[in-house]
Simulated scan of single mutants.
Amino acid sequence: MKHYKIIAMTAMENEQRVQYVLNNPQFNYIATVSPDENGVKKIINTAIDALVVMTDNLTGDHCALLEQIYMAKKNIVMILITNVCDLQMLTEAMDCGIGKVLTTDMDKKEIQENIVAEIVKNQSRGSESEEKGYDSKILSVFGTKGGTGKTTVAVNMAVALQKKGKKVLLIDLDLQFGDVGVFMDVPVHDTISDLIAENDFSLATIKNYIYKHSSGVRLLLAPQSPEFAELVKSSHINEIVTAVKEFYDYIIFDLGPTLDECALQALEMSDTVYFIVTPEISTLKNTKTCMKVMTTLELAGKVKFILNKDGDSYVKKKDVESTLDNEIAFVIPSEPKNTIASINRGVPIVISYPKSKVSKEIVKYVNGDEI
């Protein structure tokens, strides 16, 4: 009979309960640990097949600990046993890396069979799945002028992808005047320049500088002051993305309006570059000039154009396509009242105004097959 090594994580008042559930000759039940940093260290430093979590309330702190375990030990399966199994609990569990949710109304034998089945399924994936991790895609959102709605698009695409069930990291690379934190109402938090100053690009360290937004999107924020932008080099972008890439479905760069060394590094790493244009002659002129540079750098093949604020002028989609000699991937209508209100509130429009035209177009595109 094969034995599976298991650690349980729960509050101490549930210890006897979880010991009863895991009393099975197939289980090598190593320990019960508390949901704290000491418990996390025990789990990370012990060779186990599964972590069984018993709780009815996945708090923010609890989720942070579980995510830390998940990112450090992707070869184990994490199973939640809970009395509460609503949509919010399932979403939070999935977000933390929990692979299976079981309920306390199941009988002991059924719970044990599910645990064994989940371990076997996880192990059958073998080392190949461990190496692959997430099939990550890297996207850049770029525009040659401020005010085109670049950050609005980046933020709302990230949230829409997260709502779709993807795990998303949004990196604000508008290093001098990045507004992702403002658009998402993020309190004061460490930034990419703080990470650079620590000069440690291990996964565990980078995670300390990533902010988890209420939508589930993870954020790596731009420096709090423009003078710190010069601390960030292209090599740092490469090291950060290399460390975290396998843990996200999508990494999205919100770029500034200039082609500096960090922007070029991000564009090089990207699978797709979403170039934001608006129906204005000056924007189109700058876009054409920039595309000549991107063609020289062999980046033009990655570009997909998004026409934002459609309806703001007499310049129509067909005019934009004719001027740029490129098709528009999708069009976002002009809806200034709802868009400005969502920015001022710090709540992405796909959350604050889900029935708005802007939200519907972004969600429609994200839910398609092209992104």
Results as ranks from 00 to 15, higher is better:
242 T>E: 11
210 I>N: 07
293 V>M: 03
252 I>H: 09
201 F>W: 05
285 K>G: 00
186 V>P: 02
203 L>G: 09
203 L>I: 01
248 Y>L: 05
197 A>N: 08
192 I>G: 11
205 T>M: 10
297 L>H: 00
230 E>L: 13
215 S>Q: 12
218 R>Q: 09
231 L>N: 14
209 Y>Q: 06
278 T>A: 13
223 P>Q: 06
244 V>H: 01
243 A>I: 04
275 F>G: 02
278 T>C: 09
210 I>H: 08
205 T>W: 05
187 P>R: 08
291 M>E: 00
261 E>P: 04
272 T>L: 13
293 V>P: 10
247 F>P: 09
203 L>S: 12
284 L>P: 05
189 H>R: 10
228 F>V: 07
243 A>M: 00
257 P>T: 01
250 Y>C: 02
247 F>G: 06
249 D>F: 09
243 A>H: 03
237 I>H: 03
275 F>D: 02
273 V>Q: 05
274 Y>V: 03
262 C>D: 00
241 V>G: 07
190 D>A: 13
247 F>V: 07
280 E>T: 04
267 L>C: 00
196 I>R: 02
266 A>Y: 11
239 E>V: 10
268 E>M: 07
295 T>A: 11
263 A>Y: 07
295 T>R: 12
271 D>H: 12
292 K>T: 05
208 N>Y: 14
240 I>L: 15
294 M>R: 01
260 D>S: 00
293 V>K: 04
276 I>Q: 10
266 A>W: 08
184 M>S: 13
187 P>Y: 10
202 S>V: 08
234 S>L: 10
210 I>Y: 08
268 E>D: 11
230 E>R: 14
287 T>M: 02
238 N>K: 11
196 I>N: 10
282 S>C: 03
279 P>G: 03
223 P>A: 02
272 T>Y: 13
196 I>M: 09
192 I>V: 12
215 S>I: 10
221 L>H: 02
194 D>W: 14
289 T>D: 07
211 Y>W: 06
198 E>H: 11
216 G>F: 01
244 V>A: 07
216 G>D: 04
236 H>P: 09
203 L>K: 14
257 P>A: 08
225 S>R: 15
192 I>F: 06
272 T>V: 12
208 N>D: 15
233 K>C: 10
211 Y>C: 05
268 E>A: 06
248 Y>H: 07
285 K>H: 03
198 E>R: 11
267 L>K: 01
291 M>Y: 01
271 D>V: 08
222 A>F: 10
201 F>K: 07
272 T>W: 13
239 E>L: 15
196 I>V: 11
